[in-house]
Amino acid sequence: MSTHLTLEDYVAALTTSGATLRDAARDAGPRARVPTCPEWTVTELVAHQGMVHRWATANLRAEPDHDTERSYAEGIAAPDPLSWLSEGIDTLVATLRATPEDVAAKVFLRNAPAPLLFWARRQAHETTIHSVDAVAATLGRWPSPSEVSITPDLAADGIDELLSGFITRRKAQLRSREPHTILVTTDDTGHAWSVRLSQEPVVTTVGEPGATDTPVSRFSGTAVQLYLTLWNRADEATVEGNTSLIEQWRSQARII
């Protein structure tokens, strides 16, 4: 699973999306519901994200005793949860910049890039997607691409992480009794992925499918439209062919 961006690109995305999340959370208020994650309030969103930042930092620092439940509870109880969130981002950014390129840290996706780049990428997208959740809380609905600040390059990279990494895991739920392929294409960045569903874990290949594998559905749109749609934060993709597959995606490819 190759990455499309550099370490500094990911750090910049993490920093920018962290600020967006913080500002949108402040505007929405701590008790506001999060339409894209309806089981959460803004306080719970902030606590979750701050916990994940601290967990990523602990992995990079080889601190195996990090307690995620205690970290989450700390965020819930913090006198100023947004300052607590910012502290976690600052520490994570400093850790990413100070960690050697050959660090032997744990990763959790198949065919992952080297650990330093893996964690930078993962936290850039984790924070970007949850910044979208915070924007949704201010709007009271799912946002459109024009209402979030995400570059096409970052979006295409996040689509790749999702399609090549997350949904191909053995524990992922996306399955089909009848094998078939979904073609995902970006209109603006020129990327394509062939997503093969069956009763076994998903197999994703970069590019168009082979001549003997005709897709039953095609998801297309700009990179940002697809990024938000495939991470289940918007409904912006154009779906051709078997249109019911987008509903299957909604129910089986849900990642918080």
Rank of each mutant, 00 (worst) to 15 (best):
S198G: 14
P100D: 05
A155L: 05
R196S: 10
R121S: 08
E8T: 13
D9H: 13
P143E: 07
Q49G: 06
P143K: 07
G29R: 08
E236N: 02
A105P: 11
G50H: 08
H125K: 14
H4F: 06
T168Q: 14
V148H: 03
F108V: 13
I182T: 00
S244K: 00
G75I: 07
W249T: 13
A192R: 03
E236P: 00
V239Y: 10
S2F: 03
A155Y: 05
A120R: 01
A211T: 14
Q173N: 09
D153M: 02
R122T: 03
T15Y: 02
V135T: 08
R196W: 01
I167A: 12
L7E: 10
A62C: 10
V93W: 01
W84D: 00
V206T: 12
A156I: 06
S83Y: 00
T99P: 07
A12W: 03
S217Q: 11
T238V: 08
A156T: 13
P35N: 02
E178Y: 06
A13S: 12
L163E: 07
F166P: 08
E126D: 15
H191M: 00
N232Q: 11
T238P: 01
L245Y: 00
A78T: 06
A28G: 14
G50W: 07
A211C: 07
T20Q: 08
Q248N: 15
T168V: 15
P179H: 07
I159R: 05
A94H: 05
L96R: 02
V202Y: 10
T238S: 06
P38N: 05
L45M: 08
L183H: 04
H191R: 09
W40C: 04
T6W: 08
L96M: 10
G88Q: 06
V132P: 02
W84A: 01
W40A: 04
E101H: 09
L174D: 08
D235T: 05
A253Q: 01
T91Y: 00
D23V: 01
E240G: 04
R61S: 10
A211W: 10
D102Y: 04
A28D: 14
A12N: 11
G29A: 10
A136P: 05
T3Q: 03
E178I: 12
T189L: 15
P30L: 12
E147F: 09
V52A: 14
A58R: 01
L117G: 09
A19K: 02
E63V: 11
P215M: 12
D213E: 15
T95N: 04
S149Y: 03
I256M: 00
V42E: 13
